[in-house]
Amino acid sequence: MFSEEAFKIFEQSIEKYHVLDKVDQPLINPYPIGEIEHLLFRKNWIDTVQWHFEDLIRDPDIEPVKALELKRKIDASNQERTDLVEYIDSYFLQKYAEVDIKETATINTESPAWAIDRLSILALKIYHMKEETERTDASEEHLNTCTNKLRTLQEQKKDLSTAIDQLLADIESGKKYMKVYKQMKMYNDEELNPVLRGQKQG
Rank of each mutant, 00 (worst) to 15 (best):
Y31S: 00
R151W: 06
E11F: 01
F92C: 01
D83P: 02
K22H: 08
K200H: 11
V99D: 01
N144L: 13
E134Y: 06
D117T: 04
L192F: 08
D159C: 11
E110V: 10
R72N: 13
D55G: 00
S77P: 11
N193W: 15
V65T: 15
L167I: 04
L160G: 04
I88C: 05
K157H: 11
P30C: 08
K200A: 14
W45A: 04
E54N: 03
H18F: 14
Y96Q: 06
K102H: 12
K175C: 07
V49E: 02
A113D: 02
K158V: 01
R81T: 13
E155K: 12
H38K: 00
L160E: 02
I116Q: 01
K182M: 11
K158G: 00
S3I: 00
T133P: 09
Q25L: 14
Q50M: 13
T136N: 12
K158Y: 02
D159V: 15
F41H: 05
D170R: 11
E80S: 13
D55L: 13
K200S: 10
I101H: 03
Y177L: 15
Y181L: 10
V65D: 15
Q199T: 09
H52Y: 07
Y87T: 05
K95E: 01
E134V: 05
L93N: 03
D75K: 15
P60E: 03
D117L: 14
Y91M: 10
Q166V: 12
T109F: 07
K66Y: 11
Y96T: 02
I121P: 01
D59Q: 10
T133G: 09
L27G: 01
A163F: 06
V49Q: 02
L153E: 06
Q25C: 07
P60L: 05
A163G: 02
V85N: 10
E132C: 04
L40C: 03
I14N: 02
L119T: 00
Y127Q: 05
L153C: 02
E190P: 08
